[in-house]
Design a protein around this nucleic acid. Sequence first.
DNA 1: TCCTTGACTCAGA
DNA 2: CTCTGAGCCAAGG
Length: 122
Amino acid sequence: MMKPRFTSPPDPQGFRIHVWEVVRMIPLGKVATYGQIAALLPVPPGMSAQDFRAFAPRWVGGAMAACPADVPWQRVINAQGKSSLKGADQSRQQELLEAEGVEFDDRQRVDLKRFGWNGPEK
DNA sequence: TCCTTGACTCAGA
DNA sequence: CTCTGAGCCAAGG
């Protein structure tokens, strides 16, 4: 399969584990975007925050492509409020979220204002 | 070797 | 609110 790694971070494994850790914090019935998750992660040493912002979302996506079964991957969607998946996986994700109380509109979009995760704490 | 295509986001029209 | 195009890197046809 194609692995859209886009420039592996300094510590690919550690990065993915960190991503999963953040995803696991997303409360039931809420969703987070790749960028949101990326913003919660520490910027790798030697890399500017600006570059990190451009790369991180892809890395998060790459991490989700191989996430463990105990990670609520379905709660991670793109900044457009939609699933970046395709085909059967996309449908499965929507069903899982609807089962948690997340609503989708006619265009299969989630209202981030209502169901968006505010963050781990604040 | 060139061109397309990725679990992406942001700014601009 | 919706649609485009640019930015970034690698793998496959």
